[in-house]
């Protein structure tokens, strides 16, 4: 971290003396998770139900962190009724109208690929050891609109550490639920489902990268990707995959759905960059939802100081 430079993001930096050495942190987690697994295995079904709802109760208690921007959050009603979730239709209000039909409880996530502890895990077991926190991030869509969202979740890096990727794990790939009974966009095959997205392992463990389970002090609304979604604030919204059912660690770079669909329009990295234009529309400015006129789009969505190191060949080489 460069100190002394004025930043619009308050990024909490603990003093070096307080940073737990990584091996200690990992072994402590192992104790916790092993304990949780043993505990879970010994419990009867009714008690498991109780733990299943426990994570929802923890959402309102999420710590308000200094990960925030100066701008006012987008009003909740606007943020949750204007969404891209093409499985439910391509119009902005369709996810809001239809996504409630999606079954999000029970939910399980498959962890696969280059990882020591693969398997299919119940959501409550995935979430159990993680403390939730609130972070207010800018959100910039590739369609040149933006919002400011108070997310609730935990760093993806913490989850990755728990499942112990092997040394061959260079990328992390994600998949969204596919259910054509409730997803008209899937039933009509408007894209080559399932929705797939991926990050490099360095991007995935970056402290800004969040797995979100809620927003606006409440559980994640289905149209915004309940129960578990990815939030990568320096990338276009399409990288923030919703309703995740699979996380796979790979050595080869995974193919992403939008990249496959229109490679000249949707880069694999999808980093917000006002200088790399979408071929069909302007990327240098954006409309904040509900505002008149447009704002200037910032490099890496304003998070350049925190993420530029991930891209040593300069921003335009990673679009």
């Amino acid at each position: 971290m460069r100190r002394g430079r004025r930043s619009r993001i308050d990024y909490p930096v603990p003093p070096a003396s307080e940073i737990t050495p990584k091996n200690l942190a990992v072994s402590r987690r192992k104790v916790l998770t092993t304990g949780a697994t043993l505990f879970g295995g010994a419990m009867a079904a009714p008690l498991l139900r109780a733990t299943a709802d426990d994570w929802k109760a923890r959402i309102q208690a999420a710590e308000k962190t200094d990960f925030k921007v100066d701008d006012d959050p987008t009003p909740r009603q606007r943020a949750t009724s204007y969404n891209n979730f093409f499985e439910f239709g391509t119009r902005k209000e369709q996810p809001y109208m239809r996504a409630h039909r999606m079954e999000t409880d029970p939910w399980s996530v498959t962890i696969a690929g280059e990882v020591e502890r693969p398997g299919e895990y119940a959501l409550e077991d995935i979430l159990a050891p993680h403390d939730f926190e609130q972070r207010i991030y800018r959100h910039r869509c590739v369609e040149a609109w933006s919002k400011v969202i108070p997310w609730i979740g935990f760093p993806l890096g913490d989850l990755i550490e728990r499942f112990e990727p092997t040394s061959r794990a260079k990328y992390v790939a994600f998949e969204t639920l596919v259910d054509e009974d409730v997803m008209p966009g899937v039933a009509r095959g408007i894209l080559d489902w399932p929705y797939r997205e991926a990050l490099t392992i360095e991007e995935a463990v970056h402290p800004l990268t969040l797995l979100a389970v809620g927003m606006y002090d409440d559980v994640m609304p289905p149209q915004c990707g309940a129960p578990l979604r990815l939030v990568v604030p320096w990338k276009y919204g399409y990288k923030g995959i919703k309703s995740i059912v699979r996380i796979e660690f790979t050595e080869e770079r995974p193919e992403c759905l939008w990249e496959l669909e229109q490679p000249e329009e949707y880069g694999w990295y999808g980093n917000v960059n006002p200088n790399v234009d979408h071929p069909r529309w302007d990327q240098s400015r954006e409309r904040r939802i509900g505002e008149l006129g447009r704002r200037e789009t910032e490099l890496y969505n304003g998070y350049a100081e925190l993420v530029a190191d991930l891209y040593p060949e300069g921003p335009d080489a990673y679009w």
Partner: peptide, 17 residues
């Protein structure tokens, strides 16, 4: 219809769009 929605504040999340 648009004028009524504008008056009633029912132009959706992004009225401009």
């Amino acid at each position: 219809w648009l004028a009524w929605r504008a008056w009633a504040g029912r132009l959706g999340a992004d009225p401009v769009e």
